[in-house]
Design a protein around this nucleic acid. Structure first.
Length: 279
DNA sequence: CCCACGACCTGCTGGC
DNA sequence: TGCCAGCAGGTCGTGG
């Protein structure tokens, strides 16, 4: 489901409604998601206060009292919802993890496709965690700029679109925002990453930051099922220039109403782009 | 090491 | 109406 803006929106929701609550019970309704839940998962979460929610790439990291971190990845279809104390809770299809908090509220993790991930580990081991250790720079950090991007792209021989999906190059970009950023930067998705010139990398870094910021301000994109904790939907999907717009005019090249936006397959994923504007 | 590709899952849509 | 192929916001393991 989610890319950086959606994950960040959910992190904010968790921070507002769940931070500083103590976990009093955890129920797992199956043995795992993509991978089995780790040994002692429930036991480690139970009776710990949640101190804060952080984000790294598309991972949510909940710091727990006692020096542990609860790692959450939503995969393609994961979502959280909260159930108030007085509300009755009937498990719905694909509710896999139910966390009860000291205030009586329940936090429910639902994930139809089960591509999500959960883990818990000592905070001091975070830097070495298999899922986090290779992740590249956060695009919204000041230190991420054209130079930083160019440096990483120089090592990649794949088309730029595929390089942007590689979390070692930049953190948090997925299929939608890769397409949108390349469009804004006017760069062809087929261009080989290590052929990208410095000036283009500068433009692309700006485009990545801009599209991420704007999506964040809109509460992310809701295509099928991304919702904030309170059930409200993002609306950035209305601002897509190319994603999902195959066969329509892009609105910015000189094709004036002509169906310029194409879709192609790269690395098994659909890429949308305007071959006139993106070269 | 790098890269391409299939696997992992369920649900929805569109074409017949 | 029903069925089935194809596709979906992500990662990971296995080959070459």
């Amino acid at each position: 489901m989610p890319e950086l803006p959606e994950v960040e929106t959910i992190r904010c929701g968790l921070e507002k409604s769940v931070k500083n609550r103590q976990i009093v019970d955890v129920v797992l309704r199956r043995g795992g998601l993509r991978a089995p839940f780790p040994q002692g998962f429930v036991k480690t979460l139970k009776n710990r206060k949640i101190l804060r929610f952080r984000r790294r790439a598309k991972y949510i990291l909940a710091d727990l009292e006692g020096g542990y971190t609860w790692l959450i990845h939503l995969g393609m279809s994961g979502s959280f919802r909260t159930i108030a104390k007085k509300q009755a809770y009937k498990p719905e299809a694909h509710d896999h993890v139910i966390v009860t908090l000291d205030c009586g509220m329940r936090l429910v993790y639902n994930d139809p496709r089960r591509f999500g991930q959960m883990d818990v580990f000592p905070l001091c081991d975070e830097a070495a965690h298999k899922s986090l250790v290779h992740i590249g720079p956060e695009p919204l950090e000041k230190t991420f700029d054209g130079r930083a991007l160019a440096q990483r792209l120089a090592l990649k021989k794949t088309p730029i679109k595929q390089a942007l999906l590689d979390q070692r190059v930049v953190a948090g970009i997925g299929n939608i925002y890769a397409c949108e950023a390349l469009y804004r930067a006017g760069i062809s998705p087929k261009k080989i990453a290590n052929h990208i010139k410095n000036a283009e990398a500068v433009k692309l870094a700006h485009a990545i930051k801009a599209v991420m910021r704007e999506a964040l301000a809109s509460g992310g994109s809701t295509l099928r099922d991304h919702r904030q904790l309170d059930g409200s939907t993002g609306y950035f999907q209305h601002s897509f220039d190319v994603y999902g717009h195959g066969g329509q005019p892009c609105g910015d090249c000189n094709c004036k109403g002509k169906a310029c936006v194409r879709s192609i397959t790269q690395g098994g994923r659909t890429t949308f782009f305007c071959p006139v504007k993106q070269r």
